[in-house]
Design a protein around this nucleic acid. Structure first.
Length: 831
RNA sequence: GCGAAGGUGGCGGAACUGGCAGACGCGCUAGAUUUAGGAUCUAGUGGUCUCUACCGUGCGGGUUCGAAUCCCGCCCUUCGCACCA
């Protein structure tokens, strides 16, 4: 008998057979519950990497488990196929079209995925770059437009000079492009936006409904950036105008000693025009605008300002306060203007010191007797306390004052309470070729006209010069641009920008539900059967981008009454990275492990088993060649366990197993089997610690193996071994689908192992005849005794006291306390 | 600076409800088998040691009969946020 098995031959054989017999076709039966397992679909870069192997293996185990639990499982796969790399590759290689490049990559990656033996229903494959798909992406755009959620606006936007396109705020990390790392510039452009800000509150509130890791919710919460405060109107002196500011601390209004405008604030020009130092002010504003955003928004950087020459009126005190322009004030947050309270805000304090502006204390610690003075401060007092120097509000606590002052302002029509979010609307226009065209026509007469639904898709023309030059490539295709207005029929031109690829991936999980529907993106009836996704698996890098956009889209679709749930992913499992030598795999580091090589050398089952065993799914995983060899050894042992005993495994029947008469090692083995079933089920189904599930199966193998070794041929309980082996294979099937299928077949079992029912455990089988009770003296383990379970406390203590080990410690001392945990532990406290 | 997660043998990790720390695997040591092995099997493997005990889960304290697990303080690592008014 060979020590190892020919995995290549065997894996090919079963993959072919599974495909022929369509064993992974999605079923929707009346009386079964559904389970929708989804892993984030890949960008078809052309090559599978270890990160892919990890996510898809995790998802596959979960899908196979629920399927064996007799759920109707939806487990689909597709391609996030639009995007820049296709264009860049085409530019680089000169003669290959993005479409060709993408489709070639898809077919290559599909082969690689199939080689992993994943249980996908490929009939539901979805490709976002396919007109049959993006037609519906465009359809959603039109719905957004209809519901006033898509709008065109001119505003300062992020421009990536590397990618030669604009980016959404979410795609800018530390002022650099998320894709290519180029430093992002600000440009004033007219672009399409989705109104995600309308949904800010719901996106925040509905976190409650989600079984997601706290840190992911926290990241989204930070991004949305809710803060509750008050908008206050400061009249500008000598003008019939108000200066609006947003503050979370209206209680400090009596301490506001100056106003600060963002350099981009619309009032700047007007105020400057009437100042003697007009030139100087413009110079300052220009300088501030040129200052890098990064520099301007870092807490450490120097704050600069200039006086406008104008004054505002503090609406509570009636006092004049100067209006300045300050580069630390951001136009993009609040109203772009602030009231500055140097005594109680560190930034304002630093600024006031630098420009010699008055500082007025209005809050002091509650326990303080005499008044806190400006002279005593060497930094801002930002904590809460009680109000002073605030007229009728003196003595109120911060908390009360915030409410009462806001109320008073509302009454006197000076201000009103408002909630601010730092979330901005989602900029979806891209000046690139390889994306879904935005389905809009511009007509001189009718203005912006959406393309009628029945004319979708607006197809992406094939022959395009797409070398980026900052202009949309589609703009150079006359056949595409020139069209007629859908409303008046006059000549008109098409929108030439394409949509952000995150739009494509914001609804793909809905298309899987009904991928061939030609009337609608999906039918609401089918969505009722399958939506939402029960388990979503994917990388944490999408914590904000994709996951937030997908949630937003889902809420919009929910508001359109097409689905019954307003959240797409009930459960989220963000898997960790695959590392090599302690670092992320990368070509430049030269530490890349190629899945193709691993599969060729060890086979898919081994690769899957190792990657799932080495670490719990959420943690980073260190790739270890020796560890892979260990996984292979284990599968070889299983192989031999069946093949070396194949004769009796085929001869005996598990029906002959008499559970009642089991005793000794046989009974122990039987109990271990049931313990393992219990543990593996919980580890996959509830805890999602696939590594410990595999450990448990290994332990079970070790038990069978030593039972076989240590029991004489006469005493061996053959039906018991057969039962154990069969169930071991069933437990292992989700992890190593090929080898278990082959061995199942060799044991002459009917049907695919993957269509079998997941084994159940019996409570009775878990019962022990004897339990080990630990005896501690003063909390230290000194002895152990075997007793029957449920033995009374007194008897246990009696037994324990008789032990030599115990006598040694107890004989000349006094027992002052005994603690008994039945069936587990006795602790004797002696003095 | 704020927030979150984490720190356990030589390594990856386990300990799920406060109750035997180190399951399972890798590596290592010895032996068996073999022409040979980087194959397979068996046994051992936290440290110290006066050989039956002591020490041991980042560090220091506390609660408890009993702490990797709970509480307080500190250190370190990773991630996220950060002039958000």
């Amino acid at each position: 008998m060979d020590n190892s098995y020919n995995f290549t031959e065997l894996e090919n054989k079963w993959q072919k057979k599974w495909e022929e017999e369509e064993i992974y076709k999605t079923e929707n039966t009346e009386d079964s519950e559904k389970y929708y397992v989804l892993e984030m679909f890949p960008y078809p870069s052309g090559d599978l990497h270890m990160g892919h192997v990890r996510v898809y293996s995790i998802g596959d185990v979960i899908a196979r488990y629920w399927s064996m639990k007799q759920y109707d499982v939806l487990h689909p796969m597709g391609w996030d196929a639009f995007g820049l790399p296709a264009e860049n590759a085409a530019i680089k290689h000169g003669n290959i079209h993005p479409r060709e490049w993408t489709w070639d990559n898809i077919s290559r990656m599909k082969k690689q995925l199939k080689r992993l033996g994943l249980s996908y229903d490929w009939d539901r494959e979805v490709t976002t770059a396919d007109p049959d798909y993006y037609r519906w992406t465009q359809w959603f755009f039109l719905q957004m437009f209809k519901h006033d959620l898509a709008y065109r606006d001119e505003s300062p936007v992020n421009w990536c000079p590397g990618c030669e396109t604009v980016l959404a705020n979410e795609q800018v990390i530390d002022n650099a492009c998320e894709r290519c790392d180029s430093e992002v510039e600000e440009r004033e452009l007219e672009q399409w936006f989705f109104k995600i800000t309308d949904y800010a509150e719901r996106l925040l509130q509905d976190h409650e409904l989600l079984d997601w890791p706290e840190r992911v919710k926290e990241m989204q919460k930070n991004w949305i950036g809710k803060s509750e405060g008050t908008i206050i109107n400061f009249p500008v002196r000598g003008r019939n105008k108000n200066l609006e500011v947003f503050t979370t601390r209206p209680d400090t209004i009596y301490g506001a000693t100056f106003m600060a405008l963002a350099p981009e604030h619309p009032l700047v020009e007007e105020l400057a025009a009437s100042s003697e130092k007009e030139e100087e002010i413009y110079e300052f504003v220009e300088r501030a605008k040129k200052r890098k955003k990064e520099e301007r928004t870092s807490p450490e950087s120097e704050k600069n300002g200039i006086f406008t020459g104008s004054y505002a009126l503090n609406p509570m005190t009636g006092r004049d306060i100067p209006i300045l322009i300050a580069d630390f004030v951001l136009m993009s947050y609040g109203t772009g203007a602030i009231m500055s309270v140097p005594a109680h805000d560190q930034r304002d304090y630093d600024f006031a010191q630098k420009y010699d502006l008055p500082i007025r204390v209005v809050i002091q610690p509650e326990d303080r007797e005499e008044k806190l003075t400006t002279e005593e401060l060497d930094e801002a007092y930002e904590e809460s306390g009680v109000l002073i120097n605030s007229e009728k509000f003196n003595g109120l606590t911060t908390e009360k004052a915030v409410a009462e002052i806001a109320e008073e302002m509302e009454k006197r029509d000076i201000g009103y309470r408002e909630t601010n979010y730092s979330l901005r609307d989602w900029l979806i226009s891209r000046q690139r070729y390889w994306g879904a065209p935005i389905p809009v026509v511009y007509c001189d007469k009718c203005g912006i006209v959406p393309v009628p639904e029945e004319e979708l898709p607006v197809e992406l023309p094939h022959d395009v010069e797409f070398t980026p030059d900052g202009e949309s490539p589609l703009g150079k295709v006359e056949d595409f641009v020139n069209t007629s207005c859908p409303e008046c029929g006059h000549p008109a031109h098409r929108e030439t920008d394409t949509m952000d690829t995150f739009v494509d991936s914001s609804w793909y999980f809905l298309r899987y539900i009904d991928p061939h529907n030609e009337e609608l993106p999906f039918s609401p009836e089918k969505a009722e059967d399958w939506f939402p996704v029960d388990q979503y698996v994917g990388g944490i890098e999408h914590a904000i981008l994709h996951l937030l956009y997908a949630r937003y889209f889902t809420k919009v679709v929910y508001d359109m009454d097409m689905i019954l749930d307003s959240e797409p992913f009930s459960n989220l499992l963000p898997q960790g990275m695959v590392l090599k030598d302690g670092a992320k795999m990368s070509k430049s580091r030269g530490n890349v492990v190629d899945p193709e090589n691993i599969m060729a050398e060890y086979g898919a089952d081994t690769a899957r088993l190792f990657i799932l065993f080495a670490s719990p799914p959420e943690k980073d995983l260190e790739w270890d060649d020796e560890g892979v060899a260990g996984a292979e050894r284990f599968l070889n042992r299983i192989w031999r366990l069946v093949n070396e005993n194949i004769e009796f495994l085929n001869d005996v029947s598990t029906a002959d197993l008499e559970v009642q008469s089991l005793e000794g090692p046989g009974k122990d083995l039987y109990r271990k089997l049931h313990e393992t079933i219990k543990k593996v089920s919980a580890d996959i189904g509830q805890r999602q610690t696939l590594n410990t599930a595999i450990s448990a199966i290994m332990e079970l193998y070790n038990e069978v193996s030593s039972y076989l070794q240590n029991t004489g041929k006469q005493e061996l309980n053959y039906p018991l071994v057969k039962m154990t082996v069969k169930k071991t294979l069933l437990l292992l099937a989700p992890f190593a689908p090929h080898i278990t299928e082959e061995l199942w077949d060799r044991m002459n079992q009917k049907g695919s192992i993957h269509n079998q029912e997941w084994p159940d455990y019996s409570e009775q089988a878990l019962q022990r005849d004897e339990v080990t009770v630990v005896i501690q003296i003063n909390g230290k383990v000194r002895d152990k005794i075997q007793v029957r379970p449920g033995l009374g406390e007194d008897e246990l203590i009696e037994k324990a006291k008789k032990r030599d080990q115990v006598q040694k410690y107890v004989s000349e001392k006094e027992i002052i306390k005994t603690i008994v945990v039945p069936d587990k532990l006795i602790n004797l406290v002696v003095k």
